[in-house]
Design a protein around this nucleic acid. Sequence first.
DNA 1: ACTGGCACTCGACTTCGCGGAGTGCCAGCT
DNA 2: AGCTGGCACTCCGCGAAGTCGAGTGCCAGT
Lengths: 340, 340
Amino acid sequence: MSLDDRKLEVLRAIVEDYVATQEPVGSKALVERHQLGVSPATVRNDMAVLEEEGYIRQPHTSAGRVPTDAGYRLFVDRLSRVKALSPAERRAIERFLVGAVDLDDVVHRTVRLLAQLTRQVAVVQYPSLARSAVRHLELVPISTTRIMLVMIADTGRVEQRLVELPGPTPGDDVLDMRRVINAKLTGQKLADTPPLVQTLVDECAPEKRTTMACVASVLLETLVERSEERLALAGTANLTRGGVLDFQGSLRPVLEALEEEVILLKLIGEVEPSTTRVRIGDENEIDNLRAASVVSTGYGPGATIVGGLGVLGPTRMDYPGTIATVRAVARYVGDLLAQN
Amino acid sequence: MSLDDRKLEVLRAIVEDYVATQEPVGSKALVERHQLGVSPATVRNDMAVLEEEGYIRQPHTSAGRVPTDAGYRLFVDRLSRVKALSPAERRAIERFLVGAVDLDDVVHRTVRLLAQLTRQVAVVQYPSLARSAVRHLELVPISTTRIMLVMIADTGRVEQRLVELPGPTPGDDVLDMRRVINAKLTGQKLADTPPLVQTLVDECAPEKRTTMACVASVLLETLVERSEERLALAGTANLTRGGVLDFQGSLRPVLEALEEEVILLKLIGEVEPSTTRVRIGDENEIDNLRAASVVSTGYGPGATIVGGLGVLGPTRMDYPGTIATVRAVARYVGDLLAQN
DNA sequence: ACTGGCACTCGACTTCGCGGAGTGCCAGCT
DNA sequence: AGCTGGCACTCCGCGAAGTCGAGTGCCAGT
């Protein structure tokens, strides 16, 4: 016995009602609120099957039904159509993002916008260095034995690092290095730079080699190894929405997970092109987030992806709405980046 | 009738026990756990007076006593001695901060360290631009009509902004501007720069004046108006410690307050030289934080202060320990900054 | 000025009983 | 077959009632 259309319809109704009311939903209430055209008894039979198959469950005997993670999954995959955004939402997005002056600003506005629209926790990854190219490298002398290395990526990200030189170095030498380095690296994908940096040292005049080696090593750190990824987070207060009910009464593990950048990156950083990814409850690999769902997607100028963004909330969330919002925001941000 | 020494001793005992156990403390338990040398009945009389004076209160008749905000205040001001840090804590601080590679890194490590040591929410303000001086200004051509302005402050902070030029501008002109601007501004306190920026435009050759004006306006924004202050936050998960008891059961307002940078800046940004400031419960001006206490102090190289840092927790917190930790961390960070 | 004793208060926790929402199952209907 | 109405059953939620005990305030005595 498989799931015919009506059973799916029942599942959808259960999910929608439960998301709306946050209370287990019973057969009677279901037929009253939806035009299913059958009696409660029939619905009960369907429910029994759905429960058998693992899509819904009862918190206890003689309570209504609640969707399981699998139930939400089925709902998301086959029963929901992505909602169109309301004009009001579109306007909100535009108004919010217009007037951002630099990358930091864009990211901060975006993350707050997402949190506000979805009423959940929002995460935005800064454009990944790994997916960026070098726009310019600058060496700024700070003292005779120290220079500051500033890298500007085509995504607008700027990274800087202090370089301790092995000995006093005249300003002209610094300018020289700057010229050589830029000639070699400007326009290159960061991922491709490591071998090029090596050739920088090799091709350097012997008497300047130790200095160049110094700069090169910091350069490598900055370009590839370093705190590569950055994140912005907003809307943690939204976790308290819905009282103690969501997250089985303990925000603790969730808050802890949100403090770990590595975890967040796992959640929203692993993006395939033009997909919106939905992870529901148990599908999350992080134990602390078994009671949460994550909707994430990639963003970037045009079709390329330079980073991820998404939201995290209780499994009991409005998936169609959230997915629509996340996608829309990602697209707007991408357009914004394309303008630079 | 005023507060003699024993009454103060009783208050101290109440605060210490309540902080430790999180339960209202009664007269019997008090004499058992502390060597007060008097009977419970005597303590009860003292308690009655302390309650009269507003330093403690009963959650309900026939429960033990709990300190009021005023009680904590008295405790902090007159009854507690700042604890010395344990060697383990000192080591932890050093180990944590050693190896920071740049300012971002320092701030992030510091905030996590503070959160971990105090087991509370930690906030660290980036060195304030208003208190910094210009170390160097760099103009990086991005295209013929766009340059990137990078400012490096003596505190290690780096700010960048994109400048849209009114028309195509040769690279030499950019270099010229860079030289002029640096000559004028390097070493200046940011607070002093606005009039100097104006003279930059005035003294500029007429044909380059519109370009320079463009740069100058962005420069002004960057130096003074712009998102001037930045913050790092960590340890929000610590709010859930102590269960539903602290913050009268609702984290919501606290989390909301923590999302507002402006509020956080108010809390830890207003620092007088070399004072540790303690705001207890109602003393906070922000309504959302009436159930919280904030311990904050300034930090900076040597005696100067470039920013603030602190922690936020329930009014029921270990004040002596927290104060000691906050101070120690601030000092270490200051030393670290002094080395650059 | 402190102490021991004592009556009293009142919240925390347990038990009990009830009502009701919701179920599963079955016999009957279309 | 598939759906429906009816019915007995389960079990949660909630309020009432009762008990327990920590803690208090007060007072008389040292």
